[in-house]
Simulated scan of single mutants.
Amino acid sequence: MKVLITAGGSGIGYAMGQAFSEAGAQVWVTDLDISSVPASWRASKVDASDEAGMASLFTEVDSEWGGLDVLCANAGIAGPTAAVEDVALADWKTCVSVNLEGAFLAAKYATPLMKRQGSGAMVLTSSTAGIYGYPNRAPYSAAKWGIIGLMKTLAMELGPHGIRANAICPGAVEGPRMEGVLEREAGAKGMTRDQVYEGYAKGTSMRSFVEARDVANMAVFLGSDGARLVSGQVIAVDGHTENPDPKV
C-alpha cells in the first residue's frame, strides 16, 4: 500500500504516518517542516495550498511509485479566534486556503493516479467544527464544512472509478496546536486555559480529549480493504461531542 499524507511532519499527520507504516504501508509525507520525519518515509517540503508545488509533488509520486493507494488530505491551520466582525479578510483567506483549497488540490492531483489504476481511498481531515459550527472560529468552521461538501462530491464523482472518499472529524486533540487554541479562546472569553480545557472535556460524553493516534487508527481503517464499501461518510473521532461551545 502506498500512502501520501499532507501535513505529516507532526501532529495528526505524523501519527497517521506511524500507523500506516506499522500496517506495512509505504509512507510519503509533505509538510513545511520535515526535519522530524523518519528516514524510512519519503518526505517533501510542500505548501499544501500552493498549486504548482502540489502538482510537482504528484508528478514525483507517480514517477517513483507508479500510483497511489491512499491519500490523507490532512493539512490545516487553526486560523484566528475572534468574533466574526473582528476577523480580517486576509486571515479568513489564509485559513480557508490551507484547510479547504489544500484538500481540493490534493484530491485534484491524486485523482488521475487513482483513476488509472481503478482504485484508491481518499481520507480528508475535517473537524467537529465542520459538523456543528463553532463560535469565534468562523474561517476554520467554514473551511471544515467545505471539506465535507468536497468529500461528498468526490465520493459520488469518483465511486464509479473504484475510488472511495471519507472525512474524519477529530474533536479536541491533545498537542501543541490545541494548546494554542485553548490559550486564544481563554483570552477571548476571559477564562483561564484550564477552564477552557475542562469545558472541552465536559463537552463530550466520554469526558476526554482525543489523541492523534485515535484519528490515525481511523485513517488506517478507512484506507484498508476492511472499509471497501465505506464511502461518502463523515466519521467523528471525538469522544462524542455534545456541546460545541465549551464552557465550565
Score class of each variant (00 low, 15 high):
7 A>P: 02
14 Y>H: 15
14 Y>N: 11
15 A>F: 01
18 Q>N: 02
20 F>K: 04
26 Q>A: 13
26 Q>S: 01
31 D>F: 12
32 L>Y: 04
35 S>D: 08
35 S>Q: 09
37 V>D: 11
38 P>I: 00
40 S>T: 05
41 W>D: 00
42 R>L: 08
45 K>L: 10
46 V>F: 01
49 S>T: 11
51 E>V: 01
54 M>A: 06
55 A>M: 09
55 A>K: 12
57 L>N: 13
59 T>H: 12
60 E>R: 09
60 E>A: 10
64 E>A: 15
65 W>P: 03
72 C>N: 08
76 G>K: 12
77 I>H: 09
80 P>G: 10
82 A>N: 09
84 V>H: 05
85 E>W: 11
87 V>L: 02
89 L>T: 06
91 D>V: 08
91 D>T: 07
92 W>R: 13
94 T>R: 15
94 T>C: 02
94 T>D: 12
96 V>T: 01
96 V>S: 06
100 L>W: 13
101 E>T: 12
102 G>H: 06
106 A>E: 01
106 A>C: 14
107 A>V: 04
112 P>K: 03
114 M>D: 08
114 M>A: 09
115 K>C: 07
116 R>L: 12
118 G>T: 13
120 G>L: 01
125 T>W: 03
128 T>M: 14
131 I>F: 03
136 N>D: 13
136 N>A: 15
136 N>E: 14
139 P>K: 09
151 M>Q: 14
152 K>L: 14
155 A>G: 13
156 M>Y: 08
157 E>A: 14
157 E>Q: 11
160 P>K: 15
160 P>H: 14
162 G>S: 11
164 R>Y: 00
167 A>F: 13
167 A>I: 13
173 V>M: 13
174 E>N: 02
174 E>A: 09
174 E>Q: 08
176 P>A: 15
176 P>I: 01
176 P>S: 05
177 R>E: 12
177 R>T: 04
178 M>H: 02
179 E>D: 15
179 E>C: 05
179 E>Y: 00
182 L>P: 05
184 R>Q: 15
185 E>P: 02
186 A>H: 04
187 G>N: 14
190 G>E: 10
191 M>V: 03
192 T>Q: 00
193 R>Q: 05
193 R>Y: 10
194 D>M: 08
198 E>A: 15
203 G>Q: 07
205 S>G: 05
208 S>L: 03
208 S>N: 07
209 F>C: 02
211 E>T: 07
212 A>Y: 06
213 R>G: 03
218 M>F: 12
218 M>N: 10
220 V>C: 01
222 L>P: 05
223 G>C: 06
224 S>I: 11
232 G>V: 04
234 V>M: 05
237 V>H: 01
241 T>F: 00
242 E>W: 04
245 D>Q: 02
